[in-house]
């Protein structure tokens, strides 16, 4: 059963601020969860989950241990919302 407590927890995990008026959000959330729950009717005993559609075709995909330089610092920091010299600046952590 999906209730406000579950919604609260999920919004915390997703770091998503919910509006003060929760009713619509809760209703939509419930609707989506019910929709996903439509799979209840399926017989899934003994069925392996499918993680990769190309599981048979894909061989091992490795990278050799060789250094490449794709970006310089300026490019890396260019899109930073807040920058301090050579660093990204972020809100205080403890």
């Amino acid at each position: 059963m999906v209730n406000e407590k579950v919604l609260e927890r999920v919004s915390r995990l997703a770091e998503l601020e919910l509006p003060k008026e929760r009713d619509q959000v809760l209703r939509d959330f419930q609707r989506l969860v019910d929709f996903a729950g439509m799979l209840e009717g399926l017989q899934l005993g003994g069925v392996e989950p499918l993680y990769q559609v190309n599981e048979e075709q894909a061989g091992n995909a490795f990278r050799e241990d060789l250094v490449t330089q794709d970006l310089d610092r300026e490019e890396a920091l260019e899109n930073a919302p807040k920058r301090r010299g050579e660093f990204f600046e972020v809100p205080k952590t403890f």
Partner: peptide, 18 residues
């Protein structure tokens, strides 16, 4: 999320296999 992973995500991954 914990407590729902099997019922929702894993189930969907199995349905995908089917």
């Amino acid at each position: 999320s914990e407590g729902y992973y099997e019922q929702y995500y894993l189930k969907a991954m199995k349905a995908r296999r089917l």
